[in-house]
């Protein structure tokens, strides 16, 4: 079992970005995404990258952690680029039987870099906000939709519970894997069937424990008279402060500027 931070896990330090209202951060990620999609030149993408570096510096999160999230996308990026390269319009550069499209190379690079920037930018949301802050923020942002019967509270509660149990189950899995390894189990067979079978001694105890925990949680919630969102008050209140509003407005303005700059006839 491997330990360590995985992509986009909360990075616990104090910074102005961490302190920002999570709703503001979610909204800004949305605005940033729209702005980056509007950008059609490399100057604009460079500016967007510079903005991300700025956020990284202010938030004191090593940018390396945010960039890690790109790794699973590498194949997708390479494939996108190659498809653009060979399916684009004229002029073509002819390399033997291959026709490489010049505008294709340009648009492929644009799409690829844009995707990297979006993934890295969005990673700062989860790196600087705890999962609980995020679910609270989502509940709060979805609240207006309760009028059209979107179960905002239930969605947030489900997310909270799921997130709450990820570390618990990871620890549980780790313990069961170690316990079975201690009595001779092996998990590294090269034969896929043997390999799949070797996980039965882990999966059976794990499922038993998941169901037991689910039961206990349901009972504990009922014992505390939990019955959904109606009329419930909260312990942690999200409060939009002057600083949050100011950040929302000024960052939105900056992103609008980015979109405008990204559409200028530059390189």
């Amino acid at each position: 079992m491997r330990f360590g931070l995985t992509i986009g896990e909360y990075y616990p330090v104090d910074s102005p970005v961490h302190a920002l209202d999570p709703r503001v951060k979610i909204l800004l990620v949305l605005v940033f995404t729209i702005a980056v999609f509007a950008v059609v030149n490399f100057s604009g993408l460079t500016a967007a990258a510079a903005l991300i570096v700025g956020v990284a510096l202010v938030s004191r999160v090593p940018i390396r952690l945010a960039v890690k999230g790109v790794r699973p996308l590498l194949y997708l990026l390479a494939l996108t680029f190659i498809i653009h390269l060979f399916t684009g319009a004229k002029p073509w550069i002819e390399l033997g039987p291959l026709h490489i499209s010049v505008p294709g190379a340009r648009s492929g690079a644009l799409v690829g870099i844009r995707l990297v920037i979006l993934v890295v930018g969005a990673a700062f949301l989860t790196l600087t906000s705890t999962p609980i802050e995020l679910t609270d923020a989502i509940e709060s942002l979805l609240a207006p939709l309760k009028k059209v019967r979107v179960p905002a509270h239930e969605i947030a509660m489900m997310m909270t519970i799921a997130l709450r149990f990820i570390p618990t189950l990871a620890a549980e899995t780790d313990k069961i894997v170690k316990a079975q390894a201690s009595r001779g189990a092996r998990f590294e067979s090269s034969n896929p069937v043997t390999r799949a079978r070797s996980f039965i001694p882990v999966l059976v105890p794990l499922f038993l424990s998941v169901f037991r925990r689910a039961d206990e949680l349901a009972e504990a919630m009922e014992a505390r008279a939990y019955r959904g969102g109606e009329g419930r008050t909260r312990m942690r209140r999200l409060e939009m402060k002057g600083r949050d509003v100011l950040t929302l407005i000024s960052a939105t303005a900056v992103f609008a500027g980015l979109a405008w700059f990204g559409r200028l006839p530059l390189v």
């Binding site: 313990k175 069961i176 170690k178 316990a179 079975q180 390894a181 201690s182 009595r183 001779g184 039965i200 001694p201 059976v204 105890p205 038993l208 424990s209």
Partner: peptide
């Protein structure tokens, strides 16, 4: 090593399957 050294975790009953 694991053949010579038996390790029994806390609450080992949770490993039965």
């Amino acid at each position: 090593l694991r053949r010579e050294i038996g390790l029994i975790f806390q609450f080992p009953e949770s490993q039965l399957f």
